[in-house]
Nucleic acid binder design. Sequence first.
DNA 1: GCCAACGTTGGC
DNA 2: GCCAACGTTGGC
Length: 158
Amino acid sequence: MGENYWLLKSEPGCYSIDDLAAEPDQTTCWSGVRNFQARNFMRDGMAVGDKAVFYHSVTDPSAVGVMGIVRAAYADPTAQDPQDSHFDPRATPEKPLWYAVDVRFERKFRSPVPLRAMRVVPALAGMELLRKGSRLSVMPINAQEFATLCRMGEEGAE
DNA sequence: GCCAACGTTGGC
DNA sequence: GCCAACGTTGGC
């Protein structure tokens, strides 16, 4: 456990790393994932102790910090809440269909790592994120990619 | 705001 | 099972 690395996307206008850092316990339920491949990564791959890079999409796309996975996959409560925009009538307590994990803020990078900066780093060339048309909101990265992103985030802008 | 890429839906 | 239509994502 705690051996895997991930990249999690969120639009900062929806939920940003500052929002996470501002939570009372700096922890939140990472819910609302509605893509089967992303769901499978969360449900089948994530374990307590794993690390995840927080990525801001759409607005100033960039990696902005690090989170830890503090609770493994469980039924996404938003899927079964009719009031929620992520409600899915197919989801039931017996067959949740969608899953969430809990994440805890660990640190914010000294400077965000822009997507365009990632594109020119050979060590990052294999990341799913850099593939044209990639829309996955939850994806695995390897230890080297994680370390490279962290180093770039602490070094400051290139 | 534009548009390419993608996942999902639904008719057949 | 195919595939066109549609809605969404997300970079630019």
